[in-house]
Design a protein around this nucleic acid. Structure first.
Lengths: 213, 213
DNA sequence: TTCAATGTGAACGCTGTGTTACAGCTCCAT
DNA sequence: ATGGAGCTGTAACACAGCGTTCACATTGAA
C-alpha cells in the first residue's frame, strides 16, 4: 500500500544515490515483477528510469499505468523529454542530474496526495477546503456552512483557548453583532456531528471559552 | 484564456532565458496585476519565481490560487524546497538552474490539463470538444452554447468548489458583469438536461457555490 | 445551597437556492 | 426587411435550510 517501487533494479548510480539521500524506503523491481498482473497493486508509486532504453520503458510505463493506475514518476535524461510529450500515463517526471531534495519532494507529492487538494487533518477527521467536505475515517459528514467554518477555524488554530467573542469575530466576522450563546449552539452541533467519542476534542473551558485539540 | 503569466516581472535572468528558449508566449505581471481580483481569470497558468522573497511569494501563491484556482508553477531554489512541502496551491515546481526543455514540458503539462483533450469523460457522460457534442451512454444530448461551456469547465475542474463569481469570470469571461443568479439558472438547466439521476453530480454548497463530481 | 455558566432542544425568521416565466437578442429562412 | 425560433440573462415567487434566539435543564464552583 505504501511501497515505492523503483525500476529497473539496476538503475543508475546517480539515481540510487539520490534515492538513498531522499530518506525514503524503496523496493527495486525487475521485469518479472512488472509482468505479474497484480504487481502494482501493492505500490503507491512506481519510479521508472528511462536510461538507455527510453522507448521500451515508456511502453512499459503506459502498460503498467493502464493496468493498475498507479502513479508513475519518470526519471529521464534531457534528450528523452521530447518523447514524454503528451504522455498521459506519467504523473510527474524529473531530469538528470537527479537532486535528492527535488526527488524527495516529487515523491512525497505523488504519494501523499492521491487527490491534490487542501487537506487539514486531526486524528481521523479530514477537512478538505477545496471541496468543502469533511470526512471521518473517509466517510463524509455533512456540515452546514457555519459548522464548517467553525471547525476549520478550530483545526487551523488548535491547542489554544478561544473566547466566544474571539470566535464570533474570527469566524463570524468582525462586524458581527450577536449573542455569544450562538457559539455554544454551534459547538454543540459540531460535537454531535463528529460523534460522541470525538465530542471531547472541543473542550469547554468554563467561563473562558473553547479549545480544540 | 491561454495566457501564461510570469511573476515577478523582473524575474531572474536565468528564468527569463529559459522561458525565451522554451518557445512559449508570456506576459510578465507585477503586484498591481495580481491585486486585481479578476486578474487570474484570463490566465491559463501562473509562473511564480520565489527568488529572494520565498515566504512572501508563497503567501501570494496561496491567495491567488484560492481566489482563482489558476494552476501555479513555482520556480524555486533548492533551499526553498522545504517550504513548498505540503503546499496544496502549487500545481508543479521546478528547481534552479532552470532548463528550457524541462520548463517547456512542465508548462505544457499544466496548460494542457486545463485545456483538456478532445474527449472528456465522467461516468457515462462524454464530452467531445472536437465536435462540440455531449453524449450520455452514447446518446447525444443537445446543450446550448453556455450549457456546454459550463459543463466543460466543470468537467475540466472537477472536485473543487467554485463560487458564482469564479464561474462567471471563468466561464462567462472576466469582463462579464452580470447577476450571480445567472449561474443558478444555467446549473439548473444543465441538471435538467443530464437527467434526474445525474443531477446530483453538481452539488450545491450553500452560501459558497457549486462543485462537480 | 445558590448562582452563574453551559448543555440541550425547539421554534422562529431570514437568507439563499430552486423554479418558472418572460423579455431582449441573434440567427436563419422566408 | 420580416417573421419566427431558439438562446440567454433577469426578475419574481416559493420554499427549504440554516442561523439565531429563547426557554429550560444540567453542571460546576463558591
Amino acid at each position: 500500500m505504501s511501497t515505492v517501487a523503483v525500476y529497473p533494479g539496476d538503475c543508475s548510480v546517480g539515481l540510487q544515490e539520490s534515492l538513498a539521500l531522499s530518506g525514503q524506503a524503496f523496493e527495486f523491481v525487475g521485469d518479472q515483477d512488472l509482468d505479474k498482473p497484480e504487481a502494482a497493486s501493492g505500490w503507491s508509486l512506481l519510479i521508472v528510469e528511462l536510461g538507455d532504453q527510453p522507448l521500451r520503458r515508456l511502453r512499459l510505463v503506459r502498460r503498467v499505468y493502464e493496468d493498475s493506475g498507479v502513479p508513475i514518476l519518470v526519471a529521464a535524461m534531457t534528450d528523452h523529454l521530447a518523447a514524454l510529450e503528451g504522455e498521459p500515463s506519467l504523473s510527474d517526471f524529473t531530469v538528470a542530474p537527479f537532486e535528492p531534495n527535488e526527488l524527495r519532494m516529487r515523491i512525497r507529492r505523488l504519494v501523499s496526495t492521491q487527490s491534490e487538494s487542501d487537506l487539514m487533518t486531526f486524528r481521523d477527521l479530514d477537512l478538505n477546503t477545496a471541496t468543502y467536505q469533511a470526512t471521518i475515517d473517509g466517510v463524509p459528514i455533512d456540515l452546514t456552512y457555519m459548522e464548517y467554518e467553525l471547525l476549520r477555524f478550530f483545526m487551523a488554530n488548535q491547542g489554544r483557548v478561544w473566547s466566544r467573542e474571539q470566535l464570533l469575530s474570527k469566524v463570524w466576522g468582525y462586524e458581527y453583532f450577536g449573542g455569544a450563546r450562538t457559539v455554544d449552539v454551534h459547538v454543540r452541533r459540531l460535537r454531535a456531528k463528529v460523534g460522541e467519542e470525538r465530542a471531547g476534542w472541543i473542550t469547554t473551558i468554563r467561563s473562558v471559552g473553547y479549545r480544540f485539540g
